[in-house]
Amino acid sequence: MRMINSFLVMIALLASSCILSEPLMTFSSSLNQTRFQSLTQELRCPKCQNQDLADSQSGIAKDLRTQIHFMIEQGKTDQEIVDYMVARYGNFVLYRPKYSAVTSVLWMGPVAFLVIGLMVFVFVVCRNKKRRMGETS
């Protein structure tokens, strides 16, 4: 009897180890899963101090993750989902600010720095060359 019992326990153990877990969110395609991951990293949790939707454990972030998952599976485009969020929570939720007149400085700034920097480089090197010519002559 005891042998049978332990045998049953063993079978149960074996069986249990074969139970595969289910993912919390199922996606119809791996593309959708990738889209979900990148969208939740682009959007800021509106309540948190400074976290994206993917990382935040707050209630609102969970709701919004569910909403994004739902919209992706519904066949909404990324742009539609982003617009949906902005309409409700404002531009604040975008970690990558939209390009516009008021964010042009933000987006063009680094390019401008780089151009100015390279101009300075050329200027300094040329001035040096001129001075060196003067030295050798």
Binding site: S58, I60, D63, Y89, G90
Partner: peptide, 9 residues
């Protein structure tokens, strides 16, 4: 409805 109103908590 909370999400539609932009509620965060």
């Amino acid at each position: 409805f909370g999400v539609d109103m932009g509620v965060t908590g």
